[in-house]
Design a protein around this nucleic acid. Structure first.
Length: 477
DNA sequence: CGCCCCTATTCTAGAATAGGGGCGGTGCCCTAGT
């Protein structure tokens, strides 16, 4: 039965690891949290059950508009037309049209922000929802607390929609993140289906250096690793700078125009660019099999994020390499970025004071010259709106900072750990260590990539290369 | 907090250094003023 649908609708001959188990769990009506490696065919898991159930809607909460577009395109391409989305890109009329015909739809995609709107909840409450899906569910843990707080409301909303069966999907989750997901979605008896987060095809390397030697170390690395290659940096400026000194590289970050972002991502996807220098903005939903190398010029804030980012290598299963460059002090910027997310004690003090006198937020913003778009201020505003007191907010912030600094410390521990790096990561995800070839630099089982033949620019030594860059400003995109 | 860039001050009167200030990630969302 399931196989028949898989073949007829999706044109696949067989299930991949874990897919069948997830579909069965969902069909049996179990709330399910599934950890499936990237490229493991997650969309089948929530798209297939619909064909084996009586009429009803599958609601999919997705973090990025581009991801929603991609998914809908794929669904339409296989001939299914009963699919729609609710995002800021739809006009009022279009939305009304979709909401009027919900019962004729098979799939509805939306952002957590749209789902937070009461009008949309009301309309969804009137129809039968077969399955409530949260794609990239680690966002609940990663973004739900501070950055996109509508992610934290999903549980309450789901319950208001008559508690439909829920499926949360992600590629990586520590016990802590899984707990955040289960709590965030208000799941009581969640069935947990875990595939190992290990990616045996990726060998793990950390290279420690001095801050002033980083460019040199990067350049030497680039001569021995294969492409396509992704280089992660923390700041936009650094992404642009490195793209300007690495031959054949382009940069990608959230400061680019949406059209440029899409263009560059497409070019990278189609092998027209073979080195992409980017911030954490790049990666989610990127389906490219042949990425051979992921280099971190600076470290990410958590091991979780690190796994997500290096996981973009080797999705075709071929040998790949992850290199993390570290110089003492690198963690300072990450530490700053954590702090920056929360309101200062001064702000909290002033804003609560004026609120206590009955002033509107608008008036307070003017008075204190606060930017209403500042994420830290918006977080504070949201918490005050929820009725939290000053001391509750301060206490919560301190707790959150502590958790996040602990995560950052674990990232440092990974870097300074003298034993097997893979074992360290697997332990972090509550998994047993494995023994394998091409493991990590500490195991001493690293293999060099085939030397890549380079011409011209790339063969110059580092000083010459800097001069070259200095005297010929070449656009990097 | 540490960096990078700009300006001001210095004695080497034009290049070197010290000090001040701004900057630093991730994405939804129809804001409000042309």
């Amino acid at each position: 039965m399931m196989e028949e649908v898989l073949k007829r609708v999706f044109r696949y001959g067989a299930f991949r690891d874990g897919q069948r188990q997830i579909v069965e769990s969902v069909l049996a009506g179990h709330d399910t949290v599934a950890i499936l490696p990237t490229g493991g065919g997650k969309s089948i898991c929530y798209q297939l059950p619909s064909y084996l159930q009586p009429a009803g809607l599958t609601v999919i909460v997705s973090p990025l508009l581009s991801l929603i577009e991609d998914q809908i395109m794929q669904i339409k391409r296989r001939g299914e037309r009963a699919v729609a989305k609710l995002t800021s890109l739809e006009s009022r009329d279009q939305k009304e049209e979709i909401l009027r015909h919900l019962n004729q739809l098979r799939y509805l995609y939306l952002s957590p922000e749209q789902l937070a709107a009461p009008q949309i909840q009301q309309r969804l409450a009137e129809i039968k929802i077969n399955l409530f899906v949260v794609d990239e569910a680690h966002c609940i843990s990663q973004w739900g607390h501070e950055f996109r707080t509508d992610y934290a409301k999903l549980g309450e909303i789901r319950q208001r929609l008559s508690n439909p069966t829920c499926l949360a999907l992600t590629a990586t989750a520590t016990a802590q993140v899984e707990q955040d997901i289960i709590r965030g979605l208000a799941l009581t008896q969640a069935k947990r289906i875990r595939h190992s987060v290990n990616r045996p095809e990726i060998q793990l390397i950390v290279e420690q250096t001095e801050p002033s030697k980083k460019d040199e170390v990067l350049s030497r690395r680039l001569e021995t690793v294969n492409r396509p290659c992704v280089i992660y940096t923390t700041t936009r400026k650094e992404a642009e700078r490195i793209a300007s000194i690495v031959p054949q590289a382009a940069y990608y970050h959230a400061g680019l125009e949406p059209e440029d972002r899409q263009l560059i991502q497409q070019q990278f996807l189609h092998d027209e660019i073979d080195c992409l220098v980017c911030t954490s903005a790049f990666g989610m939903g990127v389906d490219k099999g042949n990425v051979r190398t992921v280099i971190h010029y600076t470290m990410p804030a958590t091991i979780e994020a690190y796994m997500q980012e290096i996981g973009r290598a080797g999705r075709d299963g071929q040998p790949s390499t992850a290199v993390l460059l570290y110089a003492p002090g690198d963690q300072q910027l990450q530490q700053f970025l954590v702090d920056k997310q929360y309101a200062s004690l001064l702000w909290i003090d002033q804003v609560t004071q004026y609120r206590g006198r009955g002033e509107s937020f608008e008036a307070i913003e003017q008075r204190l010259h606060l930017d209403p778009d500042d994420p830290a201020y918006r977080l504070l505003k949201g918490q005050l709106t929820e009725g939290k007191t000053k001391s509750q907010i301060i206490e919560w912030q301190e707790e959150r900072k502590k958790i996040r600094l602990r995560e950052l410390m674990q990232m440092i521990n990974y870097i300074q750990n003298m034993f097997c790096r893979r074992a360290f990561i697997l332990e972090h995800f509550d998994e047993r260590p494995v023994v394998q070839d091409r493991c990590c630099d500490n195991c001493g089982t690293i293999t060099m990539d085939e030397p890549v033949v380079r011409t011209g620019f790339a063969q110059l030594d580092w000083k010459n290369r800097l001069e070259e860059v200095f005297f010929s400003s070449r656009p990097s995109v």
